[in-house]
Design a protein around this nucleic acid. Sequence first.
DNA 1: CTGAAAGCGCTTACAG
DNA 2: CTGAAAGCGCTTACAG
Lengths: 350, 350
Amino acid sequence: MAAAPPRDRVTIVEIAAAAGVSKSTVSLVLKGSESVRPSTRDRVNAAIRDLGYVYNRGAANLRRARSNMVGMIIHDLINPFCAELAVGIERSFQAAGYVPFIANTAESPVRQAEVIKLMREQGVAGLIISAARGTPDEALDGLVGAGVPVVMTMRRLGGRHIPVVGPDNRLGARLAVERLLELGHRRIAFLGGYADSGVRAERLEGFRAALANAGLDPDSAVAIASVPTREGGAQALETVLAQRNPPTAAVCFNDIVAFGVCLGLRRRGIQPGRGFAVIGFDDVQEALHADPPLTTIAVDVMGLGERAAQTVLRMIETGRNTAEDHVGAVHLAVRESCGGIMPERAERRA
Amino acid sequence: MAAAPPRDRVTIVEIAAAAGVSKSTVSLVLKGSESVRPSTRDRVNAAIRDLGYVYNRGAANLRRARSNMVGMIIHDLINPFCAELAVGIERSFQAAGYVPFIANTAESPVRQAEVIKLMREQGVAGLIISAARGTPDEALDGLVGAGVPVVMTMRRLGGRHIPVVGPDNRLGARLAVERLLELGHRRIAFLGGYADSGVRAERLEGFRAALANAGLDPDSAVAIASVPTREGGAQALETVLAQRNPPTAAVCFNDIVAFGVCLGLRRRGIQPGRGFAVIGFDDVQEALHADPPLTTIAVDVMGLGERAAQTVLRMIETGRNTAEDHVGAVHLAVRESCGGIMPERAERRA
DNA sequence: CTGAAAGCGCTTACAG
DNA sequence: CTGAAAGCGCTTACAG
C-alpha cells in the first residue's frame, strides 16, 4: 500500500469556523441534539452543505469506543442459499444503522481465521458467522472471550455456547418423509451432504424418526453422503439406483443436491415426480422454476438472516453476549418433483 | 444504538509498559520495522501475545489519514453472476490486505445512494460499483469529486469518465450468432433483458452486426425485451413462438433468461438444442449443469472481478483517480442447448 | 444554549 | 536503536 496524496477532508473545525461556533456545537448539531438553538443549527447545517462536509465515522467510533460496524462471515457466497441469507442479514443491519462487512471464506477455515482477525482489528460490534466446514471448536473463543457478540447461522460449533439461528432440520426432514409415505413410497433414500455435516446429521435424524414412526426400519433405509453439489446429487442417485431393490423416492440433503438427483433421473430417462419422487431442502429461489418444480422444505432463508441480525443487534445493544438459539419454522412446499399432485396435468403430460 | 458496557481493550501503551519500552517502539514492532533490535522485538511480541492485544485499525487509519477499507456495491447479490463477481473482487482485495465492505442495493438507486453515503463516511479508500438500474448519471459525482477512486463493473454511467470493467458484449453476441448461422439457422431472435439496459444494447448491437455481416437483414430479426429472469425468458419465448414464421434459434440476454427459454421450450415439448437452439450469455456455474447443458458466452466473471479490484487498487496506490476501461475477453462455450454437437449422443437419445 | 479541554489508540517526524 | 511530543477527527463531561 503506497501512499496516496493526502486529501484535505473538511472537518468539523472548518464547519465550526464557517458557522461561527465551536466544534462542540457542530458535534451537537450532527447528532441532532435538541439543545441547540434552531438558528444556530441552521447556520451549522448550511456550512455543512456549503463545504461538502462528510462525517468521519472512524474518528467518532474511536472516541466513543464503540463501532457501527458488524461482520458477517459466509462459508460460500456463491451458493444461492447463502447469498439469500446474506441479503437477509444485510437488510436488517442496514435498517438498524449498522454497516456490515461481509467476507466469504469459501469453506476454508484458514481464510476464516484471517477474516476473523481482520474483523476484530476493524472493531466490529458484533458478528454473524456461518462457519466453514472443519472449523475447529475453538475458532471463535478469542472473539467471544473479548465480549464480542457472535451468532452462528445454520451450523453449530461443538461444545460452545454460541447462539445458533437455523431452520428446524429434524422437523423438515420428517415432513418430507411423511409426504412420501402418504404417497405410498416405502423405500426412501436420504441423498447427499457431507458425512461429517452437523446439519446433515439433524436432517437424517428427522428422516429416520419419521420412518420409525411409520413402523419402518430406519436402519434399512439407505443414506448416501456426497458433496452437496449437483454432481454430488447425481452420483448419489447412481449409487442408490445400482442397488438391488432400489428406492422409489429420495429426501435430499438440500435443493442443490435435489437438482442433481433430478438431472441424474432425466439422464436415465426417468421423469422426476413420475418414476421417482424427489424432495429437496431449503427452497432456494430456483426451486420454483426448476423443471419439474421442486418439492422442498421451505425454510425462509431471508427470515432466518433477519432473525440472526436481530439477535446480534440485541446482544450488542444490551451488552449481553449470549442469546437463545432460534429454531426457525419450516414447511413443505409441495410441487411436482414428488409426484402425486395435479393429476390432471400429469394426465395431460402422459 | 444503546450503549454497550465499555470493554477495556488492551492498547499499545499497556504493551509498552509490559515490555518496558515506549509505545513508539511497540508501533515500530507492529509494522515490522527493521530498526528494532531483535531482543526488543521479541519482548514486545511476547507482551502482545500474553496480553491478547488486538490492533486497532480504526485508530491507525485515523492517524495515517488513510484507510484499508474498500467498498463494493452490487446491484443484486442473489443473482449468481453478481455473486461470482463479488467473490472475485473480494478475493483480490483480501489478498492485497484491504478489507471489503459489501453492500447489496437490490436494484434500488435510493438504497444505493444511502450506501454510497455510508461508505464515504466510513472512509473507504476506493469503491467498485455495479450500478442499480436507473442510477442517475450524477450518482457518483460526490465520490469522484472527492477524489475517491471508483470503478464500475458491467454497467456504464452516461456521460461520466468512470472506468468500466466488463466483458466484450458485442463480440460475445456476434460469436453466438455466427455459431447459429453455421448450424444453418436463418431466423434467430434476441430474447430478454430490460429494454433500457445498456448491456443489452451492446449485445444487441453485436447480434445485429453479425446478421448484417452474413447478408441477413438485422432489422427483420426479432428482439423481445423482458425482465432478466427465468419467467421473463419463458414469456419472451412465448411471444416469439406466437409469431408467424417463428425463429428457430435464440441468443439470450443472459444465462438466466436462457434457462427460462429452455424451460418454456420443454413445457411445449420441444427439446432445447433439438427443436430450437438456445445460447446464453455469462456462463454462470449453473450453465454447465443445466439440462441440457447450456451453450453460452463465457465471460470469466471471477476474472472480471479480480480485474476490477486490481484497477481500483492501482488507482488507490498511485493516487490517480482515472484508469482505462477494460473489455474482457469472451468465448463461446459450446454445449448441447444449441444443438449440432455430439451427434453420437444425440443419436442415442433420439 | 455554547465553549474549552481532554482523550479515544494509533503513527510520525524529530531528537538523542 | 529508542523515547517524548504532537496530532488524526471526533465526543464527552464540565463550566459558564
